[in-house]
Amino acid sequence: MPTDNLQFTPHIKLEFKINEKDFFVAGESASRVKKTLQQLGLHQDIIKKVAIIIYEAAMNVAIHGNHGMLRIYIDPESILVETDDEGDGIPDIELAMQEGYSTATHEIREMGFGAGMGLFNIDQCSDELHIDSKVGTGTKLQAKVYLRKKDSISDP
């Protein structure tokens, strides 16, 4: 069983730097982390959730965050995806969480993003989500997916 391997999973930290408008790194980091999680033998539904969170969160940093960091912490109980950026911040987090609300530019929409689904998707895939944002300073997002919770292996 894939989850039997978890007690032997070492603590792992993966880190990616995201520069302003570096949209490539979002998909690239999601792909690389997916491979790592597959090598650890995790369930494909958990891998899918984490990959979606990484893709969306990293895109948010590239789009809105000026520049920042993406970190993934893997331990036997959970996977934590964390982004830290120095962007303009989110004035109204509750509003930003609403599906369909977006401040993305036309350029972003042309790429297939910016439909106001990023934070919504992250929320759908997370067991825990914390967003700390200060206008003019930046945003820190932490999304956690539990590995042993039965709910976390169902489709998002």
């Binding site: 998909g27 792909s31 979606i52 893709y55 993003f113 489709d155």
Partner: peptide, 30 residues
Amino acid sequence: LINEMLLYVTPDTLLLTSLTNIHIVHTAQV
């Protein structure tokens, strides 16, 4: 819409799209 693909696409699905940027390949891979 990449956001919708990320949320709804299941394994072994064929994607039909008019998007041609690199994100479509990353999304397909993920």
